[in-house]
Structures are given as structure tokens and as C-alpha cells.
């Protein structure tokens, strides 16, 4: 039971973070708050993927004595899985790109309707 909780508790906290971002996206009326919620959601998903790559007792995915021991076999279990890190580097950059486009659309909405609140915008559209 204790092993189960120690192995799983951080997944549960990531889900709590994701749900905080999701609530901000669907529940808050302010557009900037919605964008902040989207940022929190994306960061929580990236955190989940990075945590999949963890291994107990392994070190960073950088070969320390690579040039000295050229012929020596490399232990797979001695290094953290580098694949999630690579994919999440791409995801972080895409995250900032979506943030920029979302903020540009938010600024244009403010210039047209002079408010950032969703209900006032919907009232002005009708």
C-alpha cells in the first residue's frame, strides 16, 4: 500500500494541476485568465511526460567519460530515458507559440469591444 502511494502520488498531483488549468479554461470569464489556465494545463502535461522518463538510481542523459572509454559498453539503466525530454522540448516551444497567437487575438478583441470579459463580449455581439 505504501509502495503504491509512493509510486503514484506525483501522478495524482499532476492531475490536480491539470484540473486547475481546466477549471480556469472553462470556468473563468476573463480571457487572460483563460490563457493562463491553458498555460498551466500544458505545463502539467509536459511535467507528466518528463516524469515518465525517470529511472531510480540513474543519472543525467549525458555521457560523462565518453571520450576516454570509447570501446566500453554503456549501461542502459545508468542513464535517464532521453526520448521524453526531446519531445517535450518541442512541446515547450509550441506552447509559447500558441500563447503568442492567443494573446494577439485577445488584444484584437479588446480593441474592438473594449473589454476582456466573456459575458460582456457576448452581450455586445448579440
Amino acid at each position: 500500500m505504501v509502495d503504491f502511494i509512493v509510486g503514484k502520488y506525483n501522478y495524482w498531483i499532476y492531475i490536480v494541476l491539470m484540473m486547475i488549468g481546466f477549471y480556469a479554461m472553462i470556468g473563468k470569464k476573463n480571457l487572460i485568465k483563460k490563457i493562463i489556465g491553458m498555460n498551466i494545463f500544458q505545463t502539467a502535461i509536459i511535467l507528466f511526460y518528463v516524469s515518465i522518463g525517470c529511472k531510480k538510481g540513474a543519472t543525467l542523459p549525458i555521457l560523462g567519460h565518453a571520450h576516454g572509454h570509447a570501446g566500453q559498453a554503456i549501461q542502459t539503466s545508468a542513464y535517464i530515458n532521453p526520448l521524453p525530454h526531446v519531445l517535450m522540448l518541442t512541446a515547450i516551444v509550441v506552447m509559447v507559440a500558441t500563447l503568442g497567437v492567443a494573446l494577439a487575438i485577445g488584444i484584437m478583441i479588446y480593441l474592438k469591444y473594449n473589454t476582456l470579459e466573456e459575458d460582456e463580449i457576448l452581450k455586445a455581439v448579440k
Partner: peptide, 21 residues
């Protein structure tokens, strides 16, 4: 967690450029 490249990218791109935007 050992993901130093991701940490560098987050510190420069998300915490820097994202906050400025």
C-alpha cells in the same frame, strides 16, 4: 528530475518570453 535541457528551455522560453508577452 534530471531533464536539464528541458529546464533550460523552460527558464528561458516560458518563464522569460512568455512572461514578457
Amino acid at each position: 528530475m534530471g531533464a536539464v535541457d528541458v529546464a533550460f528551455t523552460e527558464a528561458s522560453v516560458s518563464a522569460g518570453i512568455g512572461t514578457v508577452l
